[in-house]
């Protein structure tokens, strides 16, 4: 029953791809795109579940009218709309899928294929981004239609940087969650870890308030964690209010590297531990 780990350690050396990596990527992307389109009703719900920033938008717009905060209501509305957009493109759920595959033993057949199972998850997330985009755009346009005063355009350079930052943050968020997912090899319910982490993410990433409204000491500490780079950094690029752009990208890169190394290490350790159903 323990033959799988030996074979399973093969795919991690991803050089064994049978096809051209680009072909594999294209096929996976189109397969998962078709799959996602099948569940459009669900996708709409996913988009709607990202209302958290909109709730805080209302609170802060109302609060800023008192003039007791350093940002104007309009700036805050733009910021939270940007947060909403960033959230839409960086939502990750790989830990639940991975955990289920592991507990139900579905991971075993994937391990036999000459493709690291991570790519399936990665491309299903990526495909979902494309399937989700129209719904998210409709929501943003509808919002600006209802409240045209908030409309703004990111400058060309910032837009490019913001798109790049969103792409990189998605990768960072994916790697972090996939690293937590590895813990499933040992505990079977790794998502408790993700939920714990999510709390910090919710309040420290800038989803609840822009970092510039944090008390100074808290902000100084938070900037050393990965959280602000997951939401605050790309969002502030989108609204043309970013500072320390270079440091931001360095931080994303550094944290990605840390979690990537940890992830590969846990993956190798985990496979030797793996004893899922049918393995």
């Amino acid at each position: 029953m323990t033959t799988v780990p030996a074979e399973g350690s093969g795919p991690s050396a991803s050089g064994e791809l049978r096809g051209n990596p680009l072909t594999v990527a294209r096929v996976l992307l189109s397969v998962y795109y078709a799959y996602m389109m099948e569940y459009r009703a669900e996708l709409v719900l996913w988009v709607l579940s990202g209302t958290f920033p909109l709730i805080f938008m209302g609170l802060w717009a109302q609060a800023a009218q008192s003039g007791q905060f350093s940002l104007a209501p309009r700036e805050l509305i733009q910021y939270f709309l940007a947060v909403f957009i960033v959230r839409q493109f960086t939502v990750v759920w790989v830990i639940w899928e991975f955990e289920r595959e592991l507990v139900e033993g579905k991971l075993s057949p994937y391990l036999l294929q000459p493709l690291d199972p991570v790519w399936r998850h990665f491309f299903s997330h990526l495909a979902e981004r494309f399937a989700r985009m129209p719904f998210a755009l409709i929501l943003v346009v509808a919002f600006l239609g209802l409240y045209p005063k908030a409309a703004w355009l990111p400058s060309g350079g910032n837009l490019v940087l913001a798109v790049l930052a969103i792409a990189l943050t998605f990768c960072l968020r994916f790697v972090i969650q996939y690293t937590f997912a590895m813990v499933a090899f040992w505990t079977e319910r790794a998502n408790a870890l993700e939920q714990f982490w999510f709390l910090f993410y919710m309040f420290l990433s800038g989803m609840a308030a822009p970092l510039s409204l944090f008390p100074e000491p808290v902000r100084a500490v938070v900037l050393w964690t990965p959280f602000p780079y997951l939401i605050y950094f790309p969002a502030s690029l989108l609204v043309n209010r970013a500072d320390h752009v270079f440091q931001g990208f360095v931080a994303i890169g550094a944290w990605s590297l840390v979690f990537l190394l940890l992830n590969r290490w846990l993956w190798r350790r985990g496979l030797t531990q793996y004893s899922g159903m049918g393995a």
């Binding site: 669900e42 719900l45 996913w46 579940s49 209302t51 958290f52 709730i55 609170l59 109302q62």
Partner: peptide, 21 residues
């Protein structure tokens, strides 16, 4: 994800309703 929608809506209850526009 209806769970998520439900949770998302419930989040608004963190604060008294008077805090909103």
């Amino acid at each position: 994800n209806v769970t998520e929608v439900l949770r998302g809506l419930l989040e608004a209850g963190r604060f008294p309703i008077a805090a909103y526009p």
